[in-house]
């Protein structure tokens, strides 16, 4: 079962609809039992980091998500669902889940780049960094499966003012350029999370979701 965690942050229906479109049933829930029983947990979300953490705490979902990830269950984070995986965010000076080492920082530009970073931008698969570990069953070959059929520099839809800075460069699955080169998705064992919105990225986004769901055997 695929569950989409409902913690009051943003439009879960559009995520659910994109799963429906690729022929997969996904249940929207904040029920801890259901989440723990599922085989793929999806955490979407738009809005502010501190509000997201506050809501997760209120719904007693922090332990649940930690159990899901530490127990090796597949996890898909989208936008805010990526950011909360890290230790700390500059947004509201807030503590995150700390599943991944690193922090969430605000874009700061001296030139004329607008904030939020809103619109379509290139997503470049970060394979060269992993080339030494290439081969069957390696993170690189897994990543290639997840991005199968998606051309390099493919366009995905972004809308955010903060970006993640992982401590370990090896978990960066893709990068995107906006003033700086930032991690637009991360991949670490059972966790895959994107800063962009696959559910709003037309063909590329639906393909990526389908690839990941297939990869997780759901």
């Amino acid at each position: 079962m695929i569950t989409i965690v409902d913690y009051g942050m943003g439009n879960l229906r559009s995520v659910q609809k994109s799963f429906e479109f690729i022929g997969k049933k996904a249940v929207i829930t904040s029920d801890r039992g259901k989440i723990l029983k599922s085989s793929l947990v999806v955490v979407p979300g738009v809005g502010s980091f501190n509000a997201a953490m506050k809501n997760l705490r209120k719904l007693k979902l922090i332990d649940t998500i930690l159990k899901v990830v530490n127990g090796g269950k597949y996890f898909l984070g989208l936008c805010l669902g990526l950011q909360i995986l890290f230790e700390y965010s500059e947004e509201g000076n807030s503590k995150g889940l700390g599943i991944l080492k690193g922090k969430v920082k605000k874009f700061k530009f001296k030139d004329n780049l607008k904030i939020p970073h809103m619109g379509w931008n290139n997503v470049n698969l970060n394979v060269p960094a992993r080339i030494s570990g290439a081969g069957r069953g390696s993170p690189t070959s897994d990543l290639r499966k997840i991005f199968k059929g998606i051309e390099c520099e493919a366009y995905f839809y972004f809308v955010h003012s903060y970006y993640v800075e992982p401590e370990d460069n090896n978990i960066i699955a893709s990068t995107t350029d906006y003033g700086i080169r930032f991690a637009s998705s991360v991949f670490n064992k059972n966790v895959f999370a994107t800063q962009f919105h696959p559910e709003k990225s037309q063909r590329n986004g639906l393909r990526l979701l389908k690839n990941y769901v297939d990869y997780t055997g759901n």
Partner: peptide, 9 residues
């Protein structure tokens, strides 16, 4: 430099 964001139609 370092900006891949496209203009939108």
């Amino acid at each position: 430099v370092l900006n891949g964001l496209t203009k939108r139609i």
